[in-house]
């Protein structure tokens, strides 16, 4: 769907930059093959995540022609494949996006955007630094050292999906396996912390 949105909205001035918060270049390549019109870049050290307050994926941030953030990080799905799990109606975000690109209509003013930016806690900032050290040590073949820093990152930011789930492939843990599901339970018990905007969120009770 992102590919279609790029085709549809590109002529109206939109560029989609797909930032892969990922270490697995082959997996990124496979995904990118399905979306040849998108600009795809790889953010192994979570630089963009740190600067834009990305705590879960997939998420989008809107930036206008003047380099001004007009919509903060929020969950946004390309399609409804994960709707039963994520409870997000993807079309809501796509409709807002069309209005912004075609008519310059924004659904949030600057004050709201600023209040919804995911400002890091000191612990999260340290967790991100541990994550960067882990990537470097992993690249050097020091798996024990990488594991120590990933564990430190997880202890500091237990509810950040990018830190927590994003670290699983590097330690050989299946990101769809038992450890992931126990993380989800823990995260829900903590009140499902994350983006507060919740565009297209279908509220569930219980």
């Amino acid at each position: 769907m992102w590919q279609q949105l790029q085709q549809e909205l590109g002529p109206h001035g939109l560029s989609i930059i797909a930032v892969a918060i990922d270490s697995d270049v082959d997996a990124v390549r496979e995904w990118a093959a399905h979306a040849p019109e998108l600009t795809v870049v790889i953010d192994r050290e979570y630089t963009v995540a740190e600067r834009y307050g990305i705590v879960n994926v997939p998420a989008t941030v809107w930036i206008d022609e003047d380099g001004h953030i007009v919509r903060p990080a929020d969950t946004a799905m390309g399609d409804d494949r994960f709707r039963a799990f994520a409870h997000v109606d993807s079309s809501v975000h796509h409709t807002l996006l069309r209005k912004w690109v075609m008519n310059d209509e924004r659904d949030l003013d600057d004050g709201t955007v600023a209040s919804l930016m995911e400002r890091p806690s000191p612990e999260l900032q340290l967790a991100r630094l541990h994550r960067r050290i882990a990537v470097l040590l992993h690249d050097r073949g020091d798996m024990d050292g990488a594991g120590i820093h990933l564990a430190a990152a997880t202890a500091l930011a237990p509810n950040d999906w990018v830190i927590r789930r994003g670290s699983m492939p590097m330690t050989g843990v299946d990101p769809f396996g038992a450890e992931f599901f126990s993380f989800v339970e823990e995260w829900m018990a903590a009140g499902s912390p994350g983006y507060r905007l919740r565009t297209g969120r279908e509220d569930i009770t219980g």
Partner: peptide, 9 residues
């Protein structure tokens, strides 16, 4: 206009 799309495999 830029849509930053953060995603992962």
């Amino acid at each position: 206009k830029v849509l930053l799309l953060a995603w992962s495999s």
